[in-house]
Design a protein around this nucleic acid. Structure first.
Lengths: 343, 343
DNA sequence: ATATCGAATGCAAACGTTTGAAAAAATTTC
DNA sequence: GAAATTTTTTCAAACGTTTGCATTCGATAT
């Protein structure tokens, strides 16, 4: 019998000439079921490969045990690390993760959230897309909150929004990175900034600026250039920097990818790292330890963020009615390697 | 009224003193509904933020529009590229992707599949875990097939299993890579092999071996060392290689990560690349173009694989009863860069 | 023999939605 | 004004499972 329709409790009930309730109880080891009945039913169920239809249970219990993860991309190290962290905590608890990629598009983000709500997802982890950010849209988020579905911001966030969030202290990480460059003796520190508007870019930028200010270093507009978050996007900006009449003697990249792009351009130009130019990235991606020279960077604990975000979600879920959003800010940590260690 | 319970069709029906059927039809623009009724109901629904409960629909229609993606890890470039490819095709069609990470564990893989089946996922994309591979388990896969849930292998596969699969031609890619090294004049070509047993490792290994044979090059056991797929795992093996009495003059790594690890070790030892030692990787990960020197590698079209796998799934879904599994093997492509271009 | 009890099972409702068929209401036709 | 027709609405069942309450069936006690 290779009917493709999955075996149901009713099928089993028919087979044993009993009611579905009995089968259900037997399968769930309910004490009020006769030992023999139980054994027979369980055996038969196993034999025919019965598998509980969780969809019907979801409907009955209004619990889907599924969570949404909405991110702009999954091709960066940090995002995948966060997802792994979420997984680590939530998969063992029986939750399923629905991953939605928005490609930085507002429309996709909106549709994803709407879909997740329709599917009665029990919680949503969101890193807002760049387009959403730029346009300042947020109605689609309101509807999530109105439904009282826990919404946790990861990575990119809206500052003034009443939700929990787990983020990394980008500001102090950037500050430490620049401070380190200054302490080594670099004088003209450039910044590959990433896209404007995103918390990530702006916080690191702020750290960069404030550190320069603190040490009374001049802030040169021409040493600050926007990039994206990938390697390629650093190539031209770095070339422009190095062709300046007064080029920088150090570059602080918004992330490791960008810094590695800059490293490549600098080397092509025959510059020695760190003697002629110092380099610092951000993220502490696995590769950063193995470039040549190895890249000084700021560790961003993606896995931990994922795990903390899980905790925030669980808090909100089990919390009493009057729930107060929590903000977790994990410290970032400067990792000094060869690319900035001029002696 | 901030009841957290989502608004249902019944709620709306009560409000309008009509039956749920009318509401349902009104919301779905059924022609048999009075224009005014329709408009009123739709307006009200929008106002109170009604959102269809897809769970109940799933139960009714036996369609969940959700797919499972079961992979050993998501922290590699290739895996995420595949997932992006799946997304590209399937998200616009309304499918939701449930990502399960197995961490190379058989138990987790088994549980993930079982969970997905219970959730009545309509299809499963699987890259089997290393443990599953090593142990040769496959009963958990049988149960997927028995349920007639389309199962598509991506990346890692079981050779003799009656399912569709989308993979990259690792063998010829590896062959081309080694052939290229030989053509440049490298004589002692080592191989950082990856873990034994996995199709990916073994196919590339076979390409390596057969190419050496074809060109009558000696096959030296001591130049073949197992690694993992990450950078770190290449460090010690490469050190061992370079400390041999007769060290290799080229290294073919099972992937870019490993090759980059090797690059780092070689540079630390003061070797010039590609003059003293040639290097080739596999995957064409974004970073490989920007290392110094840039890394010769074999392009593996992850996104395309994801898209092809989607196609295979759709074929199987819409196919007639007697379905014949399809195997798609996409060509890999040698990308020659600086790390092997000795003049 | 009848009441009492305990064990084992069945009934029915619920979760939210759709849909074919039936019913009701409104409109047209003669 | 009744019959026929059209428009609009309701009924009821279905999807698969659980669960409080009722029921049945023996067995035991009186």
């Amino acid at each position: 019998m290779n009917s493709s329709r999955p075996v149901t409790i009713k099928d089993i009930a028919r087979r044993f000439r009993c009611s579905p309730s009995t089968v259900s109880r037997a399968l769930n080891d309910h004490p009020a079921i006769n030992e023999d009945t139980r054994k027979n039913i369980q055996e038969y169920a196993k034999e025919v490969g019965y598998q509980r239809n969780e969809v019907s249970l979801s409907l009955l219990n209004k619990k889907t045990a599924s969570l949404g993860v909405v991110v702009p991309t999954i091709s960066n190290y940090y995002e995948t690390a966060v997802i792994e962290g979420l997984h680590t905590v939530l998969q063992p608890m029986g939750y399923t993760l629905n991953i939605c990629v928005t490609n930085e598009s507002y429309l996709l983000e909106k549709e994803s959230l709407s879909k997740l709500l329709s599917n009665r997802t029990e919680g949503i982890f969101l890193s807002v897309s760049q387009e959403t950010y730029d346009a300042g849209y947020y109605e689609h988020l309101e509807s999530v909150i109105q439904r009282k579905t826990p919404l946790i911001f990861i990575d990119r966030e809206y500052e003034d929004f009443e939700t929990s969030r787990a983020t990394v202290d980008d500001y102090h990480g950037a500050f430490a990175a620049v401070e380190h460059l200054i302490s080594i003796g670099y004088k003209q520190i450039a910044h590959l900034k990433g896209p404007n508007g995103l918390t990530v870019s702006e916080q690191r930028f702020k750290g960069y600026i404030n550190c320069l200010k603190k040490y009374n270093m001049p802030i040169r507009e021409d040493l600050i250039i926007n990039t994206n978050f990938n390697v390629e996007s650093a190539i031209l900006p770095t070339k422009r920097l190095l062709e300046l009449a007064s080029p920088p003697d150090a570059i602080f990249g918004v992330n490791d990818q960008v810094a590695i792009g800059a490293m490549r351009v600098a080397k092509d130009k025959g510059l020695r790292i760190p003697q002629d130019i110092g380099l610092v990235g951000f993220d502490n991606s696995p590769i950063s330890a193995y470039t040549f020279p190895s890249l000084t960077t700021v560790h961003r604990p993606g896995r931990k963020i994922g795990m903390e975000a899980s905790r925030l979600f669980l808090n909100q879920l089990n919390g009493s009615g009057d729930f107060a959003p929590e903000s977790i800010v994990l410290p970032s940590e400067l990792v000094i390697r060869e690319s900035s260690l001029r002696i």
